[in-house]
């Protein structure tokens, strides 16, 4: 009886883990793999030394620990808000401790000035784990909330009761279910050098604004509170999701090069 209870508990925990993560573990891994493809020799060596199991394996760490007491302050860094005109709007999440942009400013400062701050390797690793995840989450279509509504409303999709947020989060794992994250990243790595440079310019606030405009398609396909999602939701959101993964990977690579490629 005890072992049955244990199995049920394990199954429940596993199920919960499956729901963790904005892009799901697949999306975050693809972003990390795409970033790794952009790294210079110095940055690549430093990241490999800090993450011997691979950066992609760490990409969802921030989701798994966001409710730990020690890291609870990072819980608000996974999402951001926008107004009904799709303008990035930080005010809605300020009282909760900030948003993706707040989190990015924080880890960016720590990583740029790790020497003057005397960061230990474990703190450095924490900041990189957060960076990898926050950059991914910022670009996740479902993580820009039109406030005061969010996008967790109950709905039906493919005859199952779910939430719109969950459906959108799972897009990468549906598109790339038959390929590895590294192969998916290779297929997304199509920008020219000048395109990469352009997409990595601007401030974090500019990136957030661009993401909010990309998120708009989500609400064009299924307006707020749609009870039964359009059957072609995945197909219609796939181009935007792929572009979000691509841009996210380039930006993460750009930041890692900035910090470690010297």
């Amino acid at each position: 009886m005890k072992s049955l209870r244990y199995i049920i508990l394990c199954a429940a925990a596993l199920a919960a883990c499956q729901n963790l993560g904005a892009w799901g573990s697949t999306g975050h891994k693809i972003v990390a793999e795409l970033a790794l493809r952009q790294l210079g020799t110095g940055a690549s060596a430093r990241i490999s030394a800090l993450f011997p199991d691979g950066l992609a394996e760490e990409a969802s760490w921030a989701d798994q620990h966001r409710h730990d007491e020690e890291y609870a302050f990072t819980d608000s860094y996974h999402t951001m808000a926008m107004n009904h005109d799709y303008a990035y709007d930080p005010g809605w999440r300020m009282w909760r401790g900030g948003d993706c942009v707040t989190g990015l400013h924080f880890v960016d400062y720590n990583l740029r000035y790790r020497s003057r701050l005397d960061l230990t390797d474990s703190v450095l690793i924490f900041n990189i784990r957060m960076l990898v995840h926050i950059v991914g989450d910022m670009h996740c279509l479902a993580h820009g909330y039109i406030m005061p509504e969010e996008n967790h409303w109950d709905c039906t999709f493919e005859s199952e009761t779910t939430t719109y947020h969950t459906v959108v989060d799972k897009i990468p794992s549906r598109i790339y279910k038959k390929v590895t994250a590294a192969d998916a990243a290779a297929s997304l790595d199509t920008y020219t050098d000048s395109q990469k440079q352009e997409c990595c310019s601007g401030s974090f606030e500019d990136w957030a604004q661009e993401c909010c405009l990309r998120d708009k398609v989500m609400y064009e396909v299924n307006p707020l509170y749609t009870a039964e999602l359009a059957p072609d939701t995945i197909e219609r959101l796939t181009p935007a999701a792929q572009e979000a993964l691509r841009v996210s990977g380039y930006r993460l690579g750009f930041l890692l090069n900035k910090y470690f490629n010297n």
């Binding site: 609870a72 302050f73 930080p90 005010g91 401790g97 400013h105 720590n110 003057r116 701050l117």
Partner: peptide, 29 residues
């Protein structure tokens, strides 16, 4: 700041941030 007078956002991050966050926030709008 830390003992070498370097600005340090870490101690305040879990406690609502600091004036740099506030300045960025007001400036954004």
């Amino acid at each position: 700041m830390n003992g070498r007078y370097f600005y340090d956002p870490n101690p305040t991050q879990a406690h609502g941030g600091d004036c740099l966050r506030g300045l960025r926030f007001a400036h954004y709008y």
